[in-house]
Amino acid sequence: MKEMKSLHENNTYELMELPKVLVASMNLEIEQLDVKTAFLHGDLEEEIYMEQPEGFTIKGKEYLVCQLKKSLYGLKQALRQWYKKFDSFMVEHGYDRTAFDHCVFVKKFSDGEFIILLLYVDDMLIVGRDIGKIDKLKKELSKSFEMKDWGLQIRFLAKPVSSPLGSHLKLSSKQSPSSEKEKEEMRNVPYASAVGSLMYAMATVKWILGYLRGGTVSWQSRLQKCVALSTKEVEYIAITEASKELLWMKKFLQELGLQQERYLLYCDSQSAIHLSKNPTFHSRSKHIDVRYHWIRDALEMKLFFLEKIHIDENGSDMMTKPIPIEKLQF
């Protein structure tokens, strides 16, 4: 309760309507379910023995041990065995496991309707146009597993705000409280509690979709695995990494029956774009790992297209740097 109070006092989020994305544009219903004690459903393939649980020892049989028939929480096999159990259930009911994401199952019906089920550990989303077919699947799931039906998925989206830290400001350990009085004052500030709540939410919320100009965004921000000698090389390597994600999403959506005329990858570095499209820059790029030059072959085969985006229109900057709210208002 203390954490939630801090979130409300800091206006961490605001309820708003979901932007028009795939689910909205195709007029799809989306339901959320949770499998209770999911790991206990897995069937074990090995012989595993354990001592009788403390406090539940059967009188007169204290010398006996338990031979496990099902998975238990804490077993290294538990997650895998649960997935295999669920996978066999979906296949038996006519659902196809997608080749590009084994946690997504699809079933197409003769009347043109379809159902997509997304599994994340013990949570799942069911998407489709026919609510009757969705309800039928939910009933079948309830026969085999103990389910908790959350109904229509609850959506929380953040309200755009300016980044709290200006780009000209620098943080230092010297700014930390030094005296006992300053430390005591800091303990009364709910900042740490709010950050802890956000970290908890980040670790427990299973489906996180980013929305940018009405479309879903797959993004990440992490250290590159090699040392670059210039910002151009940094952008060049980032383009290669982004293109791999783009091609995966392209094939995944095509497997779901969704086609698109052109697949665009935007970059705000003109130098990196020229380096990607022009293999004659050998003297400037020969020290870069060969695997990053794969982007040139991909562009030549027209698997996707690479274009320049102006810095004022690059909304993805909000993922990596402090920016004013005006830049987020398109």
Rank of each mutant, 00 (worst) to 15 (best):
G151Y: 07
D297G: 05
A99C: 06
V161L: 13
K61E: 12
V23M: 13
A272H: 07
E182A: 15
Y191R: 11
W294C: 03
S176G: 02
M26K: 15
Y13N: 01
L68M: 13
E54T: 13
A203C: 04
G214P: 08
Y211V: 11
K225I: 00
D268H: 06
P279K: 11
N278H: 07
Q175D: 13
T280H: 11
F56V: 02
T98P: 01
E9H: 10
D123S: 10
F109R: 11
E92D: 14
S283Q: 15
L328V: 04
F39N: 02
V23C: 09
A272S: 12
S167I: 07
V217N: 06
T37Y: 09
S142L: 04
T216M: 15
L253V: 01
R129M: 02
G215M: 12
E146W: 06
K250F: 04
L125Y: 05
F56H: 08
M199I: 13
S172F: 04
V104N: 07
K308Q: 09
E300H: 12
Y292H: 10
V227H: 10
K251M: 09
E180G: 01
N11C: 05
S243V: 09
A203D: 12
D297S: 11
L165W: 06
K85S: 08
K108N: 14
F252A: 04
I116A: 10
I115N: 03
E300M: 11
K183C: 15
V91G: 01
I288S: 03
S230E: 02
A238H: 01
D43K: 11
V65P: 00
P177Y: 12
I239V: 15
